[in-house]
């Protein structure tokens, strides 16, 4: 049976998800100029390009400015507890490998109150895309130093300047066994940001993307030296990483060919001071995913439950005299 071309086209349009299909009925309430907006757009673009069914897409977040993210996506969202996005996402993925899981978390959420979960999530290596929105400050609670704030930052809790060196989320992540994907992006190069998030999505395992994002409210001008001087940005290019479009390549001439399988070099690049590396630092597709390791071999059917229960009861049953029939016989 042939179908008229127009009907085919209509059906195609009908089944095709567009950008608006991933936008919720709530307009983002982030500040004007907040880097979170760009990350949201990149993720929506990815969903559109990959044609992810919204009902099969779950965005999990913790608490903080960035964690408002799932409210603005038309997908299943889970805006949970401060620091606990990762264990929630793990629980979701364990029994539902059919779902596409994204995690939106901030530098306070991930690197401070949720630090334990962050380390262990890297180790579990479950197949999900984790976006660390790192603006180096607590925004929603009004300007306190975060673990990634630069030393000397004056904030409401560090009025005489932050005393400690910041934690480096890239080197920490690269130091955890089972790490399988680490990348860094910046909100002010949206094309590369999208490219990296796309690479992260396609990686099987936990892909950790730190996105440096500008906070116009509390950290205005923090990234100006890098935004204004492209030579201070080091773009990591590779056939297995990202490749730059000509127009971007012309602006960002400080490029390094970095093989993402080179963990040692990845750690060196992650430790750079002065320059901000952008690109895929590390990728290892051979690391097993926890959900695959834990996948049950047998389905949880009533018949199987009956059998296993009876097997266990048999081990501890006292039978009435001369009665050894079991109800396990089916």
């Amino acid at each position: 049976m042939t179908v008229p071309l127009t009907q085919c086209l209509l059906r195609l349009i009908d089944e095709n998800y567009t950008l608006t299909d991933y936008q919720s009925d709530i307009a983002p309430r982030w500040c004007t100029g907040c880097g979170d907006n760009g990350i949201l757009t990149a993720v929506q673009r990815l969903c559109r390009d990959e044609q992810l069914p919204p009902e099969k897409t779950v965005v999990v977040s913790g608490i903080g400015c960035s964690s408002r993210f799932p409210h603005y996506m038309n997908a299943y969202g889970f805006h949970g507890l401060h620091g606990r996005a990762l264990p929630v996402a793990e629980g979701i993925k364990l029994r539902r490998p059919d779902l596409h899981v994204f995690v939106a978390t901030g530098d306070g959420d991930c690197c401070s109150i949720g630090a334990a979960h962050w380390i262990h999530a890297i180790r579990y290596n479950m197949d999900m895309t984790v976006l660390l929105h790192d603006n180096e400050v607590y925004g929603l609670t009004k300007m306190q130093a975060s673990p990634t704030s630069p030393r000397g930052l004056k904030s409401n809790t560090t009025p005489r300047g932050a005393l400690l060196d910041p934690l480096n989320p890239l080197t920490v992540t690269l130091g955890v066994p089972n790490v399988s994907f680490v990348a860094q992006a910046v909100d002010w190069i949206p094309d590369v940001l999208f490219n990296i998030i796309s690479q992260a999505y396609h990686h099987k395992g936990l892909s950790f993307v730190r996105v440096l994002q500008r906070c116009p409210e509390f950290m205005d001008h923090r990234f100006d030296p890098w935004v204004q001087d492209p030579s201070k940005m080091r773009l990591l290019v590779h056939a297995d990483g990202i490749q730059l479009k000509p127009d971007i390549s012309r602006i960002y001439r400080n490029q390094e060919t970095h093989d993402p399988s080179d963990l040692h070099r990845a750690r060196e690049v992650a430790s750079l001071t002065g320059e901000i590396p952008v690109g895929v630092l590390y990728r290892n597709s051979a690391v097993p995913c926890y959900e695959d390791l834990r996948e049950g071999e047998r389905p949880n059917t009533p018949g199987l439950i009956r059998t296993v229960l009876n097997e266990e009861f048999d081990k501890v049953t006292i039978w009435p005299e001369d009665d050894v029939t079991t109800e396990a016989v089916e």
């Binding site: 949970g80 606990r84 264990p87 929630v88 793990e90 262990h120 049950g296 199987l304 296993v308």
Partner: peptide
């Protein structure tokens, strides 16, 4: 044996929130 999982989480908070997610 019935295709189910006992997950030993990194702490009690994760144990609870993992269960909440599941």
């Amino acid at each position: 044996k019935v295709g189910c999982v006992v997950h030993q989480a990194e702490d009690e908070i994760a144990a609870c929130t993992f269960a909440v997610g599941a």
